[in-house]
Every structure is written in structure tokens, then in C-alpha cells.
Design a protein around this nucleic acid. Structure first.
Lengths: 126, 126
DNA sequence: CTGTATCCGTCACGATACTG
DNA sequence: CAGTATCGTGACGGATACAG
């Protein structure tokens, strides 16, 4: 946990920021969740996640594979079959992510109430 | 933890996704970190975070305020003085975020190694 | 089936100038 | 000091067509 006057310029903090961006992107968590219980084929994932384009599924899987979060196994059959599975690293990431998820569920009512109050105050001012 | 064939369309899961995006954006975590120990004034925050534009600082603070993560206190002095502070909600969010941060530090070497291996394999193929 | 290539719209973000 | 207004840019993400 390095200290720096400008967290931004610190390489370690940039790494954390980068990881948070990955987790915060539109599809990563949904894909990891879909792989949580079992390995999946490409189109299985596409159906399971729902609403994702082929392009984004491919891109996100490549990033996850590069970081060692998922493995990609090609079976040289015809038609081709590719299985994606979580690695231990990917599964271990799911733990703190789940903590954030549970925090969200626990505090969702309060957040919604806060927003309603804020928006109400804003339109009073307007 | 609601079940749905298409997580995307589930309002609870969208809320989680939204929260992850907020945490995953470029500045939120850095601002929360800067407010962790004490309340800060606008330009104090700007200096502390480092590299953020006025516009993004304002926007991010507004979002955090709307969600009830920070309070905004205006002192009617001249020149004007505005203090930002974390709420209990904001502080409680910091807990699971820190868990993710620590996971990152713990697994950074492995991730870097994975990337190097992946990139190496790629340029072999090329 | 499992991708890659291409095009395109949107929006987050940055820089700058201006205001109370 | 603490913002708001405006404009520009690039990355992100979707749709579609094509390929092995």
C-alpha cells in the first residue's frame, strides 16, 4: 500500500485502478458469474449472459484469458468447439467481487432513498 | 441474489453493475481514498488526487453526493469554502473496495506473469 | 460453431474559458 | 475559491458482414 502525493502516477495504484476498471466494465463480472459453476462453450456463454455481442464476448474473454482468469480450450473437432473455464485466479477474484455485490444489495434501499431525496431537493431548487 | 436467465435484464443485477461501474470509473476510488482520513475542500481534493480536471472532480463528487456517499457543506464565507466528507455509507463502501485492492496487490505478480506469457505466445504465433 | 474485420454512434473524459 | 459552460477527442460498445 504505497504512499504517494499523486496516487495516479504510482504504478501500483495504476494497477489497482486498471483492475477496478476491468471489474467495472460492462461484461466481465457477468461472464465470470456464468463460468462460476461450470465451464462453458462460446455460444453457451453468449446465451447465458444475454445481450452481449459476439465482438464484446470475444474481447472480454481475451482479456480475461490474458490475465489468467480463464482458460481457453480448443477441441479440434468439426464443427469447432471451444471451452472456457475459470482458473483458480479467476475464482479467487470472485470472492472480493462477491463482497462488493453483497454490499450493494445490503445498501441498495439506502442508496435509492438518497437519490430520491437528492433529486427532490434539486427540483425544488429549480 | 436473484436468479435470472438473463442477468442483464434483472433490475437488481443492473444495480450491482451500476455500482461496479461507479467504483470502476477513473476517479471515484481515488476521491474516496483522499477523504478517508479527513474532510477536504474542493481544491484540496484537486491537489490531493492529482491530474483530475475541475469538471471531473465536480461531476464525480455530485454523483457521490447524490448516492449519499459524501456530504457537501457550504460555508457562506468570502471567498466561498466547501467541505466534502465521507458519510458512514461512503466509509462502509470503502471496506469491500479495500478487499478488492488487497486482492490486486496480492495477485499482481501472477497477473503480470500471465500477461507476459500470453503476449509471448502471441508473438510466437505471429 | 467460433471467431475476425469493419463501420458507426455515443459518451466519458480532458482542456479551456468564463462566473459568482 | 468553487464551480459552470462549451467544445474536442478517443475509447467503448453495438451491428453487421465475412471467414476458417
Amino acid at each position: 500500500m504505497t504512499e504517494s502525493p499523486h496516487p495516479h502516477s504510482n504504478p501500483d495504484c495504476r494497477a489497482v485502478s486498471e483492475l477496478l476498471s476491468r471489474v467495472g466494465d460492462k461484461w466481465t463480472v457477468l461472464i465470470v458469474k456464468a463460468l462460476e459453476t461450470q465451464s462453458r462453450r462460446f455460444n453457451e456463454l453468449k446465451r447465458e449472459v444475454g445481450g452481449i455481442s459476439q465482438q464484446m464476448l470475444t474481447r472480454t474473454l481475451r482479456m480475461l484469458e490474458r490475465d489468467g482468469m480463464v482458460t481457453r480450450t480448443v477441441h479440434p473437432t468439426v464443427p469447432p468447439q471451444v471451452d472456457y473455464a475459470l482458473t483458480d485466479l479467476g475464482r479467487s477474484l470472485a470472492v472480493p467481487v462477491m463482497a462488493l455485490t453483497e454490499w450493494t444489495f445490503a445498501n441498495l434501499p439506502e442508496i435509492h432513498a438518497n437519490r430520491a431525496a437528492y433529486d427532490g431537493a434539486m427540483e425544488d431548487a429549480a
